[in-house]
């Protein structure tokens, strides 16, 4: 049994990526990983908040780290954006002593202190490096051979780093797909940007980026895409229809969370993993494998 403190983030807990959170917990349990949710966590600090009021954003983020420090375990999140923000708070506090003093004073107003000892980790890192691909392969119960999967990393799981994988041509998700028995397809833009939250205020800009990604994934022969971030999944899945409308394209490629694919391979069901929540339906592509 391995133990971690778990930080779901707003989107995977109760937002549009609920299925990410629930499939992550289901898969972790099946792999003997205990993810104990950080009690009364708040927003990670978020990029938007960082850009409007940096000190407040850092303090928001530091409250989570201070709470996690009391438990003394690594803090794991499935959200790439939370991962980057919480890691950035750690490195900012280390790099800028004056800032550390200010944040310390603010935390003290809430009877908290933070000593900078929490290691922030992404769930993909836990699966690939702590549990290990051999162990995961040994738990596979369903034959996924022939399923062509595009591994989409996006940006923030590997950048700015230092991270557990290469910042521009990462491999961990590719290897995970192979260890599940499926096929990782060539995907040149696998670590390029989906536009992130710009999809809301500047939709045209983000749709252009999503279009390129979908084109790259489909061009590599993929039948589905897997992601490691709620925001990436939203942009590629929920906005796929709007990309088709804008660029007169005909994409119909399902976008799963990587935990859903792991769960499928381990024999879990579509409903149990929340796969029916995908806007671009994945059931048809997966049907053949479910019945095997």
């Amino acid at each position: 049994m391995k133990y971690y403190t778990y930080f779901p983030g707003c989107s995977s807990s109760d937002g549009g990526a609920k299925a990410y959170g629930s499939s992550a917990l289901a898969v972790a349990k099946a792999l003997d990983v205990e993810l104990v949710e950080l009690e009364d966590w708040n927003c990670c600090g978020s990029t938007p908040y960082t850009s409007v009021d940096e000190l407040a954003s850092l303090c928001t983020s530091a409250r989570n780290l201070a709470l996690a420090e009391k438990r003394g375990l690594d803090l794991v999140t499935p959200c790439s954006s939370c991962y980057v923000i919480l890691s950035r708070t750690n490195s900012h506090l280390k790099e800028y002593p004056e800032l550390r003093v200010k944040v310390g004073k603010a935390l003290a107003a809430g009877d908290l202190e933070y000593h900078g000892t929490v290691r922030v980790r992404h769930l993909l890192d836990i699966l690939v490096n702590d549990i290990g691909l051999d162990e995961i392969a040994s738990r596979v119960k369903r034959d996924l051979s022939g399923l062509k999967v595009a591994p989409y990393y996006g940006c923030q799981v590997v950048r700015p780093g230092p991270s557990f994988d290469h910042p521009e041509s990462p491999q961990s998700l590719d290897r995970l797909i192979e260890s599940l028995g499926a096929e990782a397809t060539p995907f040149p833009l696998k670590a390029r940007c989906c536009g992130g939250s710009l999809i809301i205020p500047e939709e045209d800009v983000a749709l252009g980026l999503v279009n390129k990604l979908l084109d790259s994934a489909v061009g590599g022969g993929a039948e589905c895409i897997i992601t490691v971030c709620p925001l990436c999944q939203t942009n590629l899945d929920v906005y796929q229809g709007r990309v088709n409308k804008k660029f007169k394209t005909h994409y119909k490629i399902p976008v799963l969370f990587f935990t859903q694919l792991v769960g499928l391979a381990m024999g879990m069901g579509i409903k149990e993993l929340g796969i029916e929540k995908c806007i671009v339906s994945a059931e048809k592509i997966l049907a053949g494998y479910i019945e095997r």
């Binding site: 990029t47 980057v84 950048r159 780093g161 940007c193 536009g195």
Partner: peptide
Amino acid sequence: ASCYLCTV
């Protein structure tokens, strides 16, 4: 979009 490609 904070993709950090410039940063790396």
